[in-house]
Computed example of a mutant assay.
Amino acid sequence: MLLMPKRDWQWRYDDSHGVLSVSLGAEMEFLTPYKSKLLIPDALSELEFSVEHAKFYIDFVELLTKSINISDAAKVQLALNGTAAYFLLKPQMPKSWFFDTSSMCVYSEIGKVFQLRCQGNSVQVLVVETSIQASLVMLLSKELALNSTKTLMQFECIKVMHDRLHPLKMNRAIAAA
């Protein structure tokens, strides 16, 4: 079952867990993976889940329905994390140097899934925000070691130039006439 935004939803910084959370009513709270150093100052106090946030969340769920085959619970999790990332993360500079360049030109748009390749590993990422040259992507895989000291965990975001996004391999059936 998909959760639809309600008037009582609120963003708040959860000090006990050290991450941004969304209060989804009296008895439910969703924890994002985003720590205080990544968040804009407004995200560190209570903030309403606005109409703009609700619209983005609903649109994101619809995009996920079209782009990947996952459970409703997973869609809610991705959409809440994506909404938090889109509105409440500090702007980032691209960190493309961690990733292999793609030989194909891609069209990046919110909700689209790509691969990133780093040190021989391929992981799937979901576009959360896009601009002319770069996209903010959320890691769908469990984790990715960027180098010997830095690891990106599932649902964390990183900004990369579009030339680092590899299209997913599609299984194409060829019909013979």
Rank of each mutant, 00 (worst) to 15 (best):
G18M: 11
D42H: 03
F155T: 10
W97P: 01
P5C: 06
L47W: 02
K159C: 07
G18V: 06
Y86H: 15
S148M: 06
R172D: 05
L44G: 01
K90D: 06
K37H: 15
V113D: 03
F114Q: 09
A85M: 10
L39G: 04
Y13L: 12
L63R: 12
V19Y: 01
S103E: 15
P167S: 11
E143A: 07
Y107A: 05
V160T: 12
R12T: 08
S23E: 13
V127D: 07
I110H: 08
I70M: 08
S71P: 05
V125L: 07
M28N: 07
L47D: 01
M161R: 14
E143V: 03
R117W: 00
K112W: 04
V51K: 13
L140I: 11
W11K: 00
S96V: 01
R164V: 00
K112N: 15
K142Q: 13
G111R: 05
L140S: 03
Q119H: 10
K35E: 15
L64H: 06
E62D: 06
K142R: 09
S23Q: 09
A134G: 04
V160H: 04
A79W: 06
E109F: 11
L20I: 11
S23C: 05
C105F: 13
I70F: 07
T101K: 12
Q92V: 02
L39W: 01
L20D: 11
A73P: 01
R172I: 15
M28R: 14
M28Q: 13
D15V: 12
L3W: 04
F114W: 05
N81G: 14
A84K: 00
S141I: 02
L116F: 02
L2Q: 10
Q154Y: 05
G120I: 12
